[in-house]
Design a protein around this nucleic acid. Structure first.
Length: 565
RNA sequence: GGCCCCAUCGUCUAGUCAGGUCCAGGACACCAGGUUUUCAUCCUGGUAACGCGGGUUCGAAUCCCGCUGGGGUCACCA
């Protein structure tokens, strides 16, 4: 792709709809998207649903929505309307974008390969092949297809075909070494001994991944294939097909994979693992959720490899009260991350813009617009990276704190509407706006915004007074705190404007008139209305509760103190 | 196991291609201090790494070889 090339850059992300969008997939998609944007090209989305058993429509929808939520927009591909925006379409007329609807193209390519001698039918059954494979393993030699079907006489082959014998089609792998010119890894040469004649059409008539991906990429004009390193060894197969079919070879770049902090794979199974542990720690013997029978629950708990449906898992985690590790984009959404934060962190995992901030530190925080101008495989590291949720959390906290009050309120409300409706029931929009400045710097995600004002979600009689806090703020010394609190209760009861600023000013004024420091009254008040010595600023704390509630809580606190003496 | 890829603070990384300006820079985390009515935010400072062993060179984090370690892949999954 020299500067003289006038071929527009076209990248693609091609998920198979067998579950939610994995965070690693999101990272790949982000790279493809940004690289296309940066080059003024197009980003296309294709659904690889050639596995009839595992593909589902709901997965497709979920994956599309996750991408849309992240702001990774595709020009070509399945159409979706999300959050008032439209995604996808077939402007170039190279669709459809579901592989299950493209069988004609694959079969045409396969026929062409057979005619040109690059492919041949093979009649072995899966069982026969499995037996041969096992034999090879027992003999401690690498298994390779023995080309038995290629040895068949043309008469016998024709006869079996005419008879309608079930068969697959295999690609005749050339016996020359193939060098992948990888933009991240450099040239990687694989010897022909490493490959056998792989299957390109399954018994059920569907193409395998290798065939479909090659045909589609060529027909859809894909110029750059950017994907995870697990595909590196597949690439020579794809290159061989391209050569046999006379296709242009796209530019390849394989990015390193991401892992858990302990070095294990970031797998959906991690969620089951965490949930199982929590259930065992709780000593649960029967299913805590209605969507799961006791028998299934017991089986799941016992069997290490058994996985639960995502929605069941979420419900179970909520009931048991554990936080599941975030693995899929949907998990991060539910956990209250902003899409921009996730993109920022994801881009930084394995890549560095090599730019400085004004203060001389490295540039690490950037927007989607920045990525659309700068992100690409250039400068991508080669080593595997560990996903550090703590750093993500730090980014999240910063991004949330940087939101304007209005924006925070809007985002928080959107999030709560989807994942914690109790918040929306409890606070109207105006209240959330008032709360915004106090909460913004105290939560790391939208989800834990609630924890900051947890006291507002309990009844006036429904919380405990923390012993140490009560003692320190109200009882210790000459009971000054308690006296001050009682006095202030009277003053407060006549305060008309119960907005945070007004309350704060009122407390200040009261303290000045008594010639005591702010803290002398603030802490007793705080303990009285929240039960604890820690809360957001006083004005907001009292304001969000409302005057009646505050007075009731002070009264209850005074009684409580009396009973302590 | 065969083949392939990789290797800098606890973690993500800059520096490696064009060896000296690197007793290795930044970020997160951690520790200490400051600001603050509590908490949080914010500010200042600090601890902390070139996996090991051989070469090449006046000089190696940077080049070469070996070892070790991590990862990927060996499906009628993608």
């Amino acid at each position: 792709m020299g500067p003289m090339s006038n071929t527009p850059v076209i990248t693609r992300f091609a998920p198979s709809p067998t579950g939610h969008l994995h965070i690693g997939g999101a990272r790949t998609a982000l790279l493809c998207w940004a690289f296309a944007k940066r080059n003024g090209g197009r980003f296309l989305l294709r659904v690889e649903d050639t596995d009839q058993q595992r593909s589902s429509e709901s997965s497709t929808k979920g994956i599309l929505e996750d991408l849309a939520w992240l702001g990774i927009a595709w020009e070509d591909g399945p159409e979706l309307e999300f959050d008032g925006k439209r995604f996808g379409g077939d402007e170039r007329g190279v669709g459809p974008y579901f592989q299950s609807e493209r069988l004609g193209h694959y079969n045409a390519a396969i026929e062409k390969l057979i005619e040109s001698g690059h492919a041949y039918p093979a009649f072995e059954t899966p069982d026969e092949l499995e037996a041969k494979r096992k034999e090879a393993i027992d003999a401690k030699v690498g298994y390779k297809y023995d080309r038995a079907a290629l040895e068949l006489s043309s008469e016998e082959r024709a006869e079996r075909l005419a008879r309608g014998d079930e068969h697959v089609v295999r690609f005749k792998m050339p016996d020359t070494a193939i060098t992948v010119k990888d933009q991240i890894l450099g040239d990687v040469t694989l010897e022909p001994e490493e490959f056998d004649d792989f299957i390109i059409r399954k018994r059920d008539g569907f193409p395998t991944y290798h065939l479909a991906v090659t045909v589609d990429d060529a027909m859809m004009g894909v110029t750059h294939v950017l994907r995870g390193q697990e595909h590196l060894i597949n690439t020579p197969r794809h290159v061989a097909i391209q050569r046999a079919l006379g296709f242009d070879e796209p530019t390849y770049a394989h990015m390193p994979l991401i892992f858990n902090p302990d070095g294990s794979k970031m797998s959906k199974r991690d969620k089951d693992k965490a949930a199982k542990k929590a259930c065992k720690d709780e000593g649960l013997t029967s299913s805590p959720v209605s969507s799961l029978s006791d028998a299934d629950f017991a089986e799941w708990l016992k069997n290490k490899t058994k996985q639960l449906e995502s929605s069941t898992l979420v419900e179970l985690a909520r009931v048991v009260g554990v936080d599941l590790p975030e693995i899929d984009v949907e998990d991060f959404r539910r956990a209250g991350y902003l899409p921009g934060t996730l993109n920022n962190y994801l881009a930084l995992l394995g890549w560095n813009p090599k730019a400085k901030n004004e203060d001389g530190t490295d540039l690490e925080r950037f927007s989607m617009d920045y990525l659309a101008d700068h992100y690409g495989f250039e400068g991508m590291g080669k080593g595997q990276a560990k996903f550090d949720r703590v750093k993500l959390l730090a980014f999240s906290a910063d991004d949330i704190a940087a939101l304007s009050d209005d924006e925070f309120a809007t985002r928080w409300r959107e999030w709560a509407s989807a994942y914690d409706t109790e918040i929306v029931d409890r606070f109207d929009e105006a209240t959330m706006r008032v709360l915004a400045p106090a909460i913004k710097t105290r939560c790391k995600t939208l989800k834990d915004a609630r924890g900051v004002i947890g006291f507002a979600f309990v009844g006036d009689q429904g919380f405990e007074f923390e012993g140490k806090a009560v003692h320190k703020a109200l009882i210790k010394g000459e009971a000054k705190g308690l006296e001050l609190l009682k006095d202030y209760r009277e003053a407060l009861s006549s305060l008309a404007d119960f907005a945070p600023d007004a309350i704060e000013a009122h407390v200040k004024e009261f303290c000045e008139s008594r010639e005591v420091g702010m803290g002398k009254l603030a802490q007793p008040l705080r303990v009285a209305v929240t039960g604890d010595a820690v809360s957001p600023p006083l004005g907001v704390t009292l304001g969000v509760l409302g005057k009646d509630s505050v007075l009731a809580r002070i009264d209850r606190c005074v009684e409580h103190c009396a009973s302590q003496v």
